[in-house]
Write a protein that binds this DNA or RNA. Structure first.
Lengths: 334, 334
DNA sequence: CTGAAAGCGCTTACAG
DNA sequence: CTGAAAGCGCTTACAG
């Protein structure tokens, strides 16, 4: 855990000819220490190239200045943008980040959370696959926690994406552009984001074009799912003139597959994605999307958590992150 | 750092009516404990919903099962792919990741490394902006470390990208496609990757088309730099028929800027990037690139580190990650 | 097999 | 201002 000849505060104290207690006080800039003593201690520390053992400090102080981040996956720009936002805010506050990733397996969430005990001051958890009640229970014994993008459990502050509103707006946009038969390429069933986006699609279709004008093809947010969905649409649903994909990756892959088959966006089929990842603006035609400021989501979650650790009494409110319709060439027909 | 009514191993021991030592042994699956005792302890732990304090365990065992990752930035797919590779391998080995990011400031590297002391068993450091000797010194007192993508210091094992070979191959490819006046959009001066890629460009130009056939425009790996470089080429260097950008982001932005001005790849100008990030295959025309398996870089670095922590005597060898030429439409002319 | 004690490296009331 | 001691929560020789 440390190099061969690890030097501790005892070594510093010995060299400065003071007690360990005084060394500690000098090192930590306490006022109650003579200038001369402080000087001697600091000199000794410098001479020995002393680096404090932060693990030990955390244990005795009861604060680690570290926050745990539990994510379902690390794949793609969706997560990396969130981490970037968290990191940015954490860095500003002098906090370190302990990362834990469940690789998509929901039952690992609880394990990951437990593994954070005694190493973090607070938790940022994103677990769109897990039930709110179960998540709430997992979190109940631990440190303060903020839940990102999951069903609120009524106990922990939550920052959620307004998927329903976003999906409604996406579908309304396609209809406004003249689409009359629309396909939704969905995310995995049981994923809170995916379910809400699908619900928004179905609801809007039912109240506008009619339920039978829409079809849903299940996917899993991956490139492959976008390709497979496109192929199904090409062979089985040639009348489709609009596609709303549950994320940008599937939308991009779908659009590329269409193009290879000679089906062009936006004229033959208008396409819109969700998330607003950077890649969306560079494909041709540029992809319309419901843009999310994911880095902001991460930043806000961290700030919320800091507030929570400082005054324990923060209310378990839910903040919403609203997707913004960004119309680009892939869906612009009128 | 812990919830209100934190329960410790003492509580478990008390409830099971054994000593703390026995509780510890039972909890850790030691053999030297009666089946009955183990049962009682485990029951007590379950009843109290005990979660061990990993910080305390780390301190007494001298192992944290955590590795520290120090990166220069978190922006873009380059870093997220590396983290993903590290995480993947770490997860497989039951290791946690403590993340530290310097936001581009080289002098923060040393601070970041020190802040890891006592919290990690090993370090994975990427610091392309820092001098090898300085880095080596920063690392000298700490835990085992593997350096990613930086000049080898002769002390720590290093996994480096073969930028020179990659740049040579990229330029040779452009020439083979018929380019006669080639621009290089470089990364920031002082960045090891950028410098090596620039050197490869200049060297290859000098020995083939002649030094005067190439121009170098400095950039900083960002989208904006790609746009600015494209504008300069359009206005000042209309004879340019090939562009080798130091990374994909700049190549993509450059190509998009060209397209807006009516300059098409590959016919009017052949373009190739570096890194092989996923976005490259979705732009139109698809971007040629020197592809790097960044996730693999991360995985290999972690495995190397694990080997190092297990048998301390690993040699400070340098492994090379070789870029692969991926020819796509943006540079395919013949 | 089990318990009392020492220890991991630091911090912080408690006395002086 | 300074030191000796206790403590953070756990683990592990050391005796029995």
């Amino acid at each position: 855990m440390t190099g061969a000849a690890t030097i501790t505060i005892r070594d510093v104290a010995r060299r400065a000819a003071v007690s360990v207690a005084s060394a500690s006080r000098a090192l930590n800039n306490h006022t109650s220490v003579t200038a001369a003593t402080r000087e001697r201690v600091l000199d000794a520390a410098r001479a020995l190239d002393y680096v404090p053992h932060l693990g030990a400090r955390s244990l005795s102080r009861g604060r680690s200045h570290t926050i745990g981040v539990v994510l379902p996956d690390l794949f793609g720009e969706f997560f990396s943008e969130i981490i970037r936002g968290i990191d940015y805010a954490a860095h500003r506050r002098g906090l370190q980040i302990l990362l834990s990733n469940m690789h998509g397996s929901a039952d690992q969430t609880e394990v990951a959370i437990r593994a954070m005990r005694g190493r973090v001051d607070g938790l940022l958890v994103m677990s769109p696959q897990i039930d709110a009640a179960i998540l709430g229970r997992s979190l109940s014994h631990g440190p303060p926690a903020v839940v990102m993008n999951a069903a609120a459990d009524g106990i922990h502050p939550t920052i959620a994406i307004d998927n329903l509103a976003g999906a409604r707006e996406a579908v309304a946009h396609l209809i406004e552009q003249g689409c009359r038969r629309i396909a939704h390429i969905g995310g995995p069933r049981g994923n809170a984001d995916a379910d809400a986006r699908r619900a928004g699609f179905e609801e809007t279709m039912a109240t506008s074009l009619g339920r039978e004008a829409g079809i849903v093809i299940d996917g899993d947010f991956s490139e492959e799912a976008g390709i497979a969905a496109a192929q199904r649409i090409l062979t089985e649903q040639p009348a489709i003139d609009g596609v709303f994909a549950a994320n940008d990756m599937m939308a991009v892959a779908c659009m590329a597959t269409f193009a290879e088959a000679g089906v062009r966006a936006p004229d033959q089929v208008a396409i819109i994605g969700f998330d607003g990842v950077p890649i969306a603006q560079y494909v041709t035609p540029a992809l319309s999307t419901m843009a999310l400021n994911l880095a902001e989501l991460g930043e806000r979650a961290l700030e919320r958590l800091v507030a929570l650790t400082e005054h324990e009494d923060a209310a378990p409110t839910t903040e919403m992150l609203t997707p913004q319709l960004v119309v680009r060439a892939s869906s612009r027909r009128v």
